[in-house]
């Protein structure tokens, strides 16, 4: 991939992050909303510290998955057809646009995960002995979810049902990521760590990246 490709990708990512900096939706809406969700779970299932510490990691990733979808939903509602036409007319490589949008979403999701991880640690009293794996798991989860969100948002763009459709498209497809993320942390307790799950995540992330880049042009043509 050429320098021009990466320049375009970084420009798109910068645009999306500038938009987020101005609106502050992740900082001021998604993170507090996710924290409330993590706070509600113990109230719903009962305050038993043993149970909470056992399910805490799973709940963390469920919240990350469900709220991560909001990033993609938001994109379908704020990008107008005219904006998308302008991007196409500017001659921006569709694959670079996909890469840039994914980078921006992945960064925001990583910030969201770190914030939720801190909240879960405090609320659920999680054992952090296996959390060294989080250095691998969190970025892979963020990139995978961002790729799925970007592809789904492009697929559902300009349709009347876009905001309703994206969660239905992203949530089931993100299950391999969710499973691998939770199993990685759990495998530390069982067998001191298992590379199989991070490898599965990496494979899913790689497959989604290839599909996203390869299908970016046909998706741009449908606008």
């Amino acid at each position: 991939m050429s320098d021009r490709f990466w320049q375009q990708a970084f420009a798109v990512a910068r645009r999306d992050l500038d938009r987020e900096r101005r609106a502050g939706e992740v900082t001021w809406v998604m993170i507090p909303f996710g924290a409330i969700a993590l706070l509600l779970v113990p109230l719903a299932i009962g305050i038993n510290q043993d149970v909470l510490s056992r399910i805490g990691t799973g709940m963390l990733f469920v919240v990350v998955l469900l709220f991560g979808v909001l990033t993609a939903v938001r994109r379908t509602s704020i990008e107008t057809p005219e904006q998308r036409d302008l991007i196409a007319l500017l001659g921006i490589d569709p694959a670079a646009e996909f890469t840039g949008k994914t980078m921006a979403s992945a960064f925001l999701l990583l910030v969201f995960q770190i914030a939720m991880g801190a909240v879960a640690l405090v609320l659920y009293g999680l054992d952090i002995s296996g959390w060294a794996w989080m250095i691998v798991v969190m970025p892979l989860t963020a990139v995978g979810l961002a790729e799925l969100g970007t592809v789904s948002a492009s697929v559902a763009a300009s349709t009347n049902a876009g905001p309703a459709l994206v969660p239905l498209l992203v949530t089931p497809l993100a299950i391999p990521l969710l499973l691998a993320a939770t199993q990685t942390v759990e495998s530390v307790d069982r067998e001191g760590g298992n590379l199989t799950w991070p490898v599965l995540m990496a494979v899913v992330v790689l497959v989604l990246a290839i599909v996203g880049v390869a299908t970016a042009r046909p998706l741009q043509e449908t606008r």
Binding site: A156, P172, L173, I175, P176, V211, L219, E221, T222
Partner: peptide
């Protein structure tokens, strides 16, 4: 045409779910 292109992308991504 639009339906075909967009659903083709999803048809490809959907295979990710068959593995697990």
């Amino acid at each position: 045409e639009a339906r075909a292109r967009r659903s083709a992308v999803l048809g490809i991504v959907g295979l990710v779910q068959l593995i697990p």
